[in-house]
């Protein structure tokens, strides 16, 4: 899936994956897609809940070799 920016939060523990995601999202325009890579299991539920609470759309998720990937479209 295409994305406009990638956040690498691999190896980071909460709250850092979301702190970094939020910061990068602030730099995007509405409709652009942010791709997030994280290894913390908790990031999965948290990013889903965060997207819901902020109105951004979680387009897709994937897991490859212990890395969780998220594609989020800015509201």
């Amino acid at each position: 899936m295409n994305s406009d920016k990638i956040v690498d939060a691999k190896g980071m523990a909460c709250p850092m994956p979301i702190v970094k995601t939020k910061k990068s999202m602030d730099e995007l325009r509405s409709g652009q897609v942010l791709e997030v890579h994280a290894t913390d299991k908790g990031a999965k539920n948290d990013l889903t809940a965060w997207a819901k609470s902020t109105g951004h759309e979680l387009l897709s998720t994937a897991e490859e070799n212990g890395v969780y990937k998220f594609w989020i479209k800015k509201a």
């Binding site: 709250p15 939020k22 809940a49 965060w50």
Partner: peptide
């Protein structure tokens, strides 16, 4: 400060415990 679904699934309980849930990502 966990997300809502994790909180509603399972939390600290006690007769003398007052508990509220606000996810940390709403407090950044």
């Amino acid at each position: 400060v966990r997300n809502e679904s994790d909180f509603s699934d399972w939390k600290i309980e006690g007769n003398s415990v007052e508990i509220i849930n606000i996810p940390y990502f709403d407090l950044l």
